Measured scan of single mutants.
Amino acid sequence: WVPTKREEKYGVAFYNYDARGADELSLQIGDTVHILETYEGWYRGYTLRKKSKKGIFPASYIHLKE
């Protein structure tokens, strides 16, 4: 896992994603996520609506905010 280059990196989910394991994070369309790390097509972070739950999710489900 590699920390993100920018201190504040955010994105928005444009697909729903159902977590398949305890380390994964479920997403709903429109969720804003804070991205902490990246690795081979995956991000690690949390949604702003539930900051206490961190997990991994596919990068392809996220539109990055500039």
Rank of each mutant, 00 (worst) to 15 (best):
52 S>V: 07
15 Y>W: 14
56 I>Q: 04
28 Q>M: 11
21 G>E: 09
34 H>A: 13
21 G>M: 08
22 A>Q: 11
29 I>M: 07
65 K>F: 15
41 G>L: 06
53 K>T: 08
26 S>D: 10
32 T>F: 15
2 V>F: 10
6 R>T: 11
12 V>M: 06
57 F>Q: 03
63 H>I: 14
20 R>A: 08
22 A>F: 10
52 S>C: 14
11 G>H: 03
56 I>G: 02
62 I>H: 01
36 L>N: 04
27 L>E: 00
38 T>F: 12
37 E>D: 07
65 K>Q: 12
22 A>S: 11
19 A>H: 01
23 D>N: 11
3 P>E: 09
6 R>A: 13
31 D>P: 03
1 W>V: 07
29 I>Q: 07
41 G>V: 05
32 T>K: 12
11 G>D: 02
10 Y>D: 03
24 E>M: 04
5 K>C: 14
37 E>I: 06
63 H>C: 15
54 K>R: 12
61 Y>L: 13
48 L>K: 04
34 H>D: 00
64 L>S: 02
60 S>V: 10
40 E>H: 08
63 H>L: 13
59 A>T: 06
1 W>K: 08
34 H>Q: 06
20 R>G: 06
33 V>L: 05
24 E>Y: 05
34 H>T: 07
25 L>E: 00
56 I>Y: 09
2 V>Y: 10
8 E>A: 12
19 A>K: 04
42 W>P: 00
5 K>G: 14
36 L>Q: 07
32 T>P: 07
39 Y>W: 12
35 I>M: 12
15 Y>M: 15
55 G>Q: 03
11 G>I: 05
23 D>G: 12
7 E>D: 12
3 P>I: 05
28 Q>A: 09
47 T>I: 15
28 Q>D: 06
16 N>L: 05
5 K>L: 11
46 Y>V: 05
10 Y>K: 04
33 V>G: 00
53 K>H: 11
3 P>H: 04
44 R>P: 00
36 L>G: 01
32 T>I: 15
40 E>W: 09
66 E>T: 14
41 G>W: 05
49 R>Y: 13
40 E>Y: 06
12 V>T: 08
30 G>F: 04
50 K>A: 14
20 R>F: 05
22 A>E: 13
63 H>W: 12
9 K>A: 11
26 S>P: 04
19 A>F: 01
39 Y>R: 15
7 E>P: 11
62 I>C: 07
66 E>G: 13
44 R>Q: 04
49 R>V: 09
28 Q>I: 12
7 E>W: 14
13 A>Y: 03
15 Y>R: 15
66 E>R: 13
10 Y>T: 06
54 K>P: 08
43 Y>H: 04
45 G>M: 05
52 S>F: 13
23 D>P: 04
23 D>M: 08
32 T>M: 14
61 Y>R: 05
31 D>I: 06
45 G>Y: 08
20 R>V: 10
1 W>M: 07
59 A>I: 09
3 P>R: 04
11 G>C: 09
63 H>Y: 10
18 D>P: 05
65 K>T: 14
55 G>L: 03
48 L>C: 15
46 Y>T: 04
33 V>A: 01
44 R>K: 09
51 K>H: 09
32 T>A: 11
12 V>C: 12
36 L>K: 02
19 A>T: 03
54 K>N: 07
47 T>C: 13
22 A>M: 09
64 L>Q: 03
2 V>N: 10
2 V>M: 11
38 T>V: 13
8 E>D: 10
41 G>T: 06
21 G>Y: 08
56 I>D: 01
66 E>P: 14
28 Q>R: 15
1 W>Q: 07
21 G>N: 15
12 V>N: 02
50 K>F: 12
24 E>P: 02
48 L>R: 05
23 D>R: 06
22 A>V: 11
57 F>E: 00
61 Y>G: 06
17 Y>P: 01
5 K>H: 11
38 T>E: 14
37 E>W: 06
43 Y>I: 05
14 F>N: 08
45 G>Q: 04
6 R>C: 14
52 S>K: 10
15 Y>D: 14
54 K>T: 14
20 R>N: 08
44 R>S: 05
47 T>D: 05
19 A>L: 03
17 Y>E: 00
57 F>R: 01
62 I>M: 00
14 F>L: 15
50 K>E: 15
55 G>R: 01
2 V>D: 08
51 K>M: 09
63 H>S: 09
6 R>L: 11
62 I>S: 01
56 I>T: 06
44 R>F: 15
19 A>C: 06
14 F>Q: 13
36 L>S: 05
39 Y>C: 14
28 Q>C: 12
11 G>K: 03
58 P>E: 02
8 E>H: 14
49 R>A: 12
41 G>A: 06
25 L>W: 04
52 S>Q: 10
42 W>S: 00
56 I>R: 08
63 H>F: 10
23 D>S: 08
13 A>H: 02
58 P>S: 03
18 D>N: 12
30 G>T: 00
34 H>V: 15
5 K>Y: 09
25 L>M: 04
42 W>M: 02
42 W>A: 01
20 R>I: 09
59 A>N: 03
4 T>D: 07
11 G>F: 04
39 Y>T: 10
26 S>C: 07
5 K>N: 14
60 S>H: 12
19 A>M: 02
62 I>P: 00
15 Y>K: 15
37 E>V: 05
57 F>V: 02
43 Y>R: 00
21 G>A: 11
47 T>P: 04
39 Y>E: 02
65 K>E: 11
3 P>V: 06
24 E>L: 05
58 P>G: 03
31 D>K: 02
36 L>I: 10
58 P>H: 04
6 R>S: 12
61 Y>I: 15
60 S>G: 08
1 W>I: 07
37 E>C: 10
15 Y>H: 14
32 T>H: 13
34 H>K: 13
44 R>H: 06
52 S>L: 08
26 S>E: 04
51 K>W: 11
21 G>F: 07
25 L>T: 00
13 A>M: 03
2 V>R: 13
64 L>P: 04
48 L>A: 07
36 L>Y: 06
18 D>A: 12
46 Y>I: 04
48 L>P: 04
45 G>H: 03
54 K>Y: 12
66 E>Q: 13
52 S>H: 13
1 W>Y: 07
30 G>A: 02
49 R>S: 13
57 F>C: 05
65 K>G: 08
20 R>T: 08
25 L>V: 07
6 R>P: 14
18 D>I: 14
55 G>P: 00
54 K>L: 14
59 A>K: 14
5 K>D: 14
41 G>M: 05
15 Y>E: 15
45 G>C: 07
29 I>Y: 06
21 G>H: 12
39 Y>G: 07
3 P>D: 09
54 K>W: 11
61 Y>M: 13
63 H>K: 14
26 S>N: 07
31 D>S: 05
7 E>C: 15
9 K>R: 14
58 P>V: 06
31 D>M: 06
15 Y>S: 14
44 R>C: 14
64 L>W: 04
47 T>V: 15
39 Y>F: 13
61 Y>F: 09
58 P>C: 07
62 I>Y: 01
33 V>F: 02
1 W>P: 07
2 V>Q: 11
49 R>M: 10
